[in-house]
């Protein structure tokens, strides 16, 4: 177990712009950090630089108190779980788990002990002697995690490990990963583009955009006080309404803001509410409805209980502190 420090980390693939620029993160020992952002924002690149699979163009990566820039992946004391599992197809599950330990010259009895222990934690004992081909996606995922935990590394690195699973399994595995990490207390960096996964797993979230950090914070912090319009639109589902302030000049306290943000779930129906919405479309979600409409020519979405009455025009209200104000040019948060 160890802390990980990224200082001023940058990556240039040698073709125009940087894939990652000026990243600074201090990861505490035992912390679960989630890197989240849209496709192509440099999450994998960042993770792979920590793993040592990608060379570091600028800056520094520290694991524990070692600078690891020039150290081979095998010697960085990390374990990685890949999106497509990357299990060795010709080896049995047991051999897959043992391979990394064997290469390090771990004694046979110790390998045996750790493999059995991991198998028990992950409930894969029943198919230790099968080939990966004969496993389901979820089982393969467990084996991939098993391969990481038998190593008892200083840190786990996950690159979208759940994105090949179906929605239901993803939810269960998500929970299991979280519990596993709680139990082992191993520092973890987890990459995903799924904001829900990010919210549920993270001790702290790192929101990336175009190779730069937009915001670092606990999931609730990021949700409650997004640092920019980008984060506001990315975290939370359905996405926060971002309205040009000029379209709603009558809203109190928005005079100096460029963009006004309000979460769909914070809007309530009120006969005298300050926002008038013309309803364009309704989506039923079961317990509630998503209502899409227009106000002052800007799109706006709200979630209402499914028994709330529907009309063509509705007035919506909110509490002042639920309003997020952003600068027009930079998109940064104002308060």
């Amino acid at each position: 177990m160890a802390s990980i420090t990224l200082s001023n980390l940058g990556k240039n693939y040698g073709g125009g712009g940087n894939a990652v620029t000026g990243v600074n993160i201090d990861i505490q020992d035992g912390e679960f950090i989630v890197l989240v952002g849209p496709s192509g924002c440099g999450k994998s690149t960042l993770l792979r630089m920590v793993a040592g699979l990608e060379s570091i163009s600028e800056g520094e990566v520290r694991i524990g108190d070692r600078v690891v820039n020039q150290i081979e992946p095998a010697d960085r004391d990390i374990a990685m779980v890949f999106q497509n599992y990357a299990l060795y197809p010709h080896m049995s599950v047991r051999q897959n788990l043992a391979y990394g330990l064997k290469n390090r010259g771990t004694p046979k009895a110790e390998i045996e002990r750790r493999v059995n222990e991991a198998a028990e934690i992950l409930q894969i004992g029943a198919f230790l002697d099968r080939k990966p081909r004969a496993l389901s996606g979820g089982q393969r995922q467990r084996v991939a995690m098993g391969r990481a935990i038998v190593r008892e590394p200083a840190a786990f690195l996950f690159d979208e490990p759940l994105s090949n699973l179906d929605a239901k399994l993803r939810v269960t595995m998500r929970l299991e990963i979280k519990q596993l990490q709680r139990r082992l207390k191993t520092t973890s960096i987890y990459v995903t583009h799924d904001q829900l996964e990010a919210m549920t797993l993270a001790d702290r979230l790192v929101v990336l955009n175009g190779g730069r950090i937009e915001q670092i914070g606990t999931p609730l912090d990021v949700y409650r006080r997004p640092a920019s319009t980008f984060v506001a639109g990315f975290i939370g589902s359905p996405a926060m309404n971002l309205i040009d302030a000029r379209a709603v000049p009558h809203l109190p306290g928005t005079a100096h803001a460029g963009t006004v943000g309000i979460r769909p779930e914070d809007l309530t129906v009120a006969p005298d509410g300050p926002i008038e919405m013309q309803v364009m479309a309704v989506e039923e979600l079961g317990a509630q409805r998503l209502i899409h409409g227009l106000t002052g020519g800007e799109k706006i979405t709200t979630t209402l209980p499914s028994d709330a009455p529907l009309t063509d025009r509705m007035r919506l209200s909110f509490r002042r502190e639920q309003l997020h104000l952003f600068q027009r040019e930079t998109g940064r948060r104002l308060d």
Binding site: A74, A79, Q83, A86, Y88, G100, R147
Partner: peptide
Amino acid sequence: ELTEAARIDGAGPMKFFRDILLPL
């Protein structure tokens, strides 16, 4: 990814060749 997994698992080039490439 398989190559990278092997690298992280501490397999040097010849070991990778013998343990992964040849069997595959």
